[in-house]
Structures are given as C-alpha cells and as structure tokens.
Amino acid sequence: MIIITIVLVLMVLAALWASLTTLLLRATIALALTSAMLAVVMYSLGATIAAVMELSVCAGLISVVFVSVISLTQRKPFKDYVTRRMSRMRRFWALPLVLVAIGVVLSFVHAPVQIALPLPGGDGDVRTVLWNLRQLDLFGQILILLAGVFGVLVLFKKDGPDGD
C-alpha cells in the first residue's frame, strides 16, 4: 500500500511536470513517466495485461511517435523559451498547491463507498473480451485510428490555399 501511495504521488508529480513544462520533449518524457508510474500501480493491483499495455503502448509507442514528430519541428530561440516559462509559472503557480490541498482534504474523507468487484464478462482473458465479446467496439477503435490519420493529414500537411 505504501509503495502504491508513493508511486501515485510520483505519478501526479510527473503529470504536473508534463502540464507545466514549456518544452515539448520534456513534456513527452514526463508523460511517459506518468504512464510508467500508472503501469506500476496497475501491476501492483494485479492487472498484469493492462500494465503491459500501458507500458508498451502509452509509455513506449506513443512517446516514440511524439519524439519523431518533435524532431521535425524547429526549436524556438532561448529568449522566447524563458519568456514563455516565466509566463506559464505566473499563471499556474497555484496548481500544485491546489492539488496538494485537495489531497489533504480527501485524506480526511472516508467515503462509505464499498464496491463489490465481480470480474466482468467471460473468463477475464483479454483475447476473449476483445475478439469474442467486444468486436463492435474494436470496429469503433479502428475508426478512431482512421480519423486520427486524417487528423494528421489535415493539421500537418498543408500545401495549398485556404481549405474553403
């Protein structure tokens, strides 16, 4: 339990770093760290497959995609970076304090929520769930990926005048 609490705190810190940093590369690293911490929590709670997926896809694959896109961009001058960092710190300095305050308040609240945890559908095998029980949702996932491809084309590949 202590380990999970420590990892959760680290996860929140990594997420804060990802939100507040003005450098895309650092944000990517912070996001990967957040995912890695989440994977540790999932593994500790017995969700092995979810932990592996989180680590390989969210912390691994997506970070690779982010880094490869960032490598195509140009870095702003150092002066701009400093100005942006100062501006962001002025705007969001209270965010960590608010998070800590919420954590302290919640630690005193003992919610009477007792959830029974029956294992959902089937024998819990992820392959059975994906291929036998949730084919329709898999179809939806494919569509979201396709939409994402068009998102990349629309947002990053411009070669003509205004789109309309």
């Binding site: 979201i144 939409a147 994402g148 998102g151 629309v154 205004d162 789109g163």
Partner: peptide
C-alpha cells in the same frame, strides 16, 4: 468516433 471526426472537421479550415 463521432466526436474525433467532428473535431478534425472543425480544424479543416
């Protein structure tokens, strides 16, 4: 699915 497609449609301009 609908929302993701719609968001990208907004960014089309």
């Amino acid at each position: 699915v609908t929302s993701v497609a719609a968001i990208i449609l907004v960014a089309l301009r």
